[in-house]
Simulated assay, not measured.
Amino acid sequence: MKFPSGPAPDPAGSRGEHRIRSFHARRGRITQAQAAAIDRLWSRWGVELDGSALDPGRLFPAGEGGSRTPVVLEIGFGMGDATAAMAAADPSTGILAVDVHTPGQGNLLALADRAGLTNIRVANGDAIVLLRDMLPPASLDGLRVYFPDPWPKAKHHKRRLIQPEFVTLVTPLLRPGAVVHCATDWEPYAEQMLEVLTAAPGLANRYGAGFAPRPDFRPMTKFERAGLAKGHAVRDLLFVRT
């Protein structure tokens, strides 16, 4: 299904790049409710990651006294249930949620509209383009990456999102005190995440040298439930920008 005024199939036009990506763009089967939400709400709450400069603070209304609204970037939100729940629990924080899955984009827009949430913006496209080309330094108050594709085969490990190059790209965009929160149910990927984040200059592990206890504020996702049903251990990592 095409949306004339909705998310573009490739908003950055691939920018002439031939790099390895951590995702596959997926349109997928979309419900009438999801399509209707995109048609009605994309022009208001949708953001195309086309490579043009973006000030995330300007995406959300100012807080009390005209103060800047803190913005957390979430990469890969699936169907958006956890994103909507976290937005509802913390309405003073803006969530810039990035994904390439059209049904998920429509579902999150519908969830936000149904709950009367105004602190979610749905971004379509490659998060690397956003981080590398669009955001100014120290413009984010947090980063969330929950249950990214683990790319379990050894030959695909290079496609994993949490790599040294990714962390080098994102760290300067984080304000001091910003929290990087990752979660996965794939133990080898959890170990890689811990190694990469521990080695990154400018980030400090909130829990010494290991994984974090599961925080109450992170809602259970379908990916987490599926992992637990398979007997996987779910690992959280919480690092702070120093």
Rank of each mutant, 00 (worst) to 15 (best):
I162H: 10
G63Y: 04
S139Y: 08
V234N: 03
S67L: 03
A233G: 14
R241E: 02
T171C: 09
H156K: 12
G231Y: 06
A199G: 08
P201D: 03
Y189F: 09
R29G: 13
N124P: 11
I75V: 14
F60R: 11
A89Q: 07
G125N: 10
G142S: 02
G63I: 00
Q192L: 06
R44Q: 15
L131T: 11
V122S: 11
M220C: 11
L140W: 02
A62L: 00
F23M: 05
D133T: 01
K230W: 10
R44Y: 09
V170F: 10
R214P: 05
G66T: 02
P150S: 08
T221H: 06
A87L: 02
P150K: 14
G78S: 07
G210Y: 00
V122I: 14
P188D: 06
D216S: 08
A25S: 13
L169S: 13
W42E: 08
E165F: 06
A112S: 06
P70N: 00
G78K: 05
Q32P: 13
G57D: 04
P56M: 00
S5M: 12
D81R: 15
L49Y: 03
S5H: 12
P213N: 04
H24S: 14
N205K: 09
T184A: 00
L228P: 02
K2N: 14
T118Q: 14
D50P: 04
G177D: 12
R58L: 00
I75S: 08
Q192P: 01
G177V: 04
A178S: 11
A85I: 05
E64T: 05
G46R: 01
L174D: 02
L41K: 03
A229I: 01
M220D: 06
P103C: 06
G177P: 07
A200R: 04
Y189C: 06
W45L: 10
A226G: 08
F211Q: 03
L161K: 10
R132T: 13
G80H: 05
A88D: 05
R225P: 02
A85V: 13
P215F: 01
E48L: 03
F77R: 01
T242S: 15
G210A: 08
T31N: 10
P7S: 02
L228G: 03
A233V: 15
H101G: 12
L111I: 04
T221I: 05
L49A: 04
N124I: 09
T221E: 04
